[in-house]
Structure formats: C-alpha cells, structure tokens
C-alpha cells in the first residue's frame, strides 16, 4: 500500500474513534454503540498508524526468501 492510502486510513480510523467517544460523552449514543465503533476502528487505527511511520512511497513487498 502507498503511504498516502495508509495515512488516509489512519485519519479515518482516528476520526471514528474520537467522534464515537465524544458522542458517548455527550450522551447521544449509548455505550454498546460506542464500543462497537471502537472495536472496529481501534485496531485499524493502531495498525495503520504504525504502518504509515515506515511505509514506503512505492508499492510491493520484499519476497520471503528463506533463511
């Protein structure tokens, strides 16, 4: 994946996490809904954050060549 895609995924995931938390604190959505959103968004956000730190601008992976 390209870096720009990963960064977009990260911001989308982070936005879902923050918005869900804020809406919960304002009492607009109940805890189960907030939790469901976070359960889906949090893992994606974390992994995409880690990925965007080191993702290259080019696509493609280094193949596994054994030891």
């Amino acid at each position: 994946m390209k870096r720009t895609t990963v960064v977009r995924i990260f911001w989308a995931g982070a936005a879902v996490c923050v918005v869900a938390s804020v809406l919960f604190f304002m009492g607009i959505i109940p805890l189960p809904v907030c939790a469901a959103l976070l359960i889906v968004a949090f893992p994606v956000t974390v992994l995409s954050l880690f990925f965007c730190w080191m993702a290259g601008e080019f696509g493609g992976d280094i193949p596994f060549i054994g030891y």
Partner: peptide
C-alpha cells in the same frame, strides 16, 4: 488475525 486480536480485547475492555 492481528486486527482480531486487538479487537477482541478492546471488546473485553468495554
């Protein structure tokens, strides 16, 4: 499986 691993424990936390 990495996503699921974080997801299930997030669920447990809530």
């Amino acid at each position: 499986v990495v996503l699921i691993a974080i997801g299930i424990w997030t669920a447990a936390f809530y």
